[in-house]
């Protein structure tokens, strides 16, 4: 599918989605529409975005977001889905780990390093750091006077 067709198809599913053309077609959705979009992306036979090759958590300063990189092993088209939450104290987003199983570990990593809790995730624990670690290191406002030397 070309980017135009993808754009059309996705706007049909979620009309509120903001779609931009960057390196990959970037689809930004509000968290409340997220779960209407994501299952369709895999189950729709024309989209068939079955392989999630990356999940990145991003700290935008005022908001915390997650970017999902999806590609279709059948057609070869690739899109990037983004969602953001502006709640920095108790951020909560929906999990996609029952659609793409690889998201299970990636979401645990994001929970560990950004503190975003994923609802309905079967095993929401820290993955890299110890269970009693304070803070979430990849946030921009994370401070650690002992181990982080700023030059």
């Amino acid at each position: 599918m070309t980017n135009e067709e993808l754009r059309k198809k996705i706007s049909e599913i979620v009309p509120q989605a903001v779609i931009e053309e960057q390196q990959y077609l970037t689809v930004s959705v509000e968290p409340k529409y997220f779960m209407t979009l994501m299952p369709k992306l895999k189950s729709d036979s024309d989209l068939a975005l079955d392989y999630m090759f990356n999940v990145s958590g991003v700290d935008y300063g005022d908001a915390l977001g997650v970017s999902y990189f999806l590609t279709s092993t059948k057609y070869g088209h690739t899109i990037l889905v983004k969602q953001k939450t502006s709640d920095r104290t108790k951020p909560e987003l929906e999990t996609v780990c029952h659609i793409w199983k690889t998201a299970e570990f990636h979401e645990r990593e994001i929970f560990d390093l950004y503190g975003i809790t994923f609802k309905n995730h079967p095993d929401m624990r820290r993955i890299f750091l110890e269970d009693d670690w304070n803070g979430h290191p990849l946030r921009k406002d994370y401070v650690d006077e002992v181990n982080m030397i700023l030059r």
Binding site: D50, T73, W100
Partner: peptide, 10 residues
């Protein structure tokens, strides 16, 4: 194969 794609086993 399906599981490999879903788990991102590359």
């Amino acid at each position: 194969k399906e599981d490999a794609i879903s788990y991102g086993v590359t």
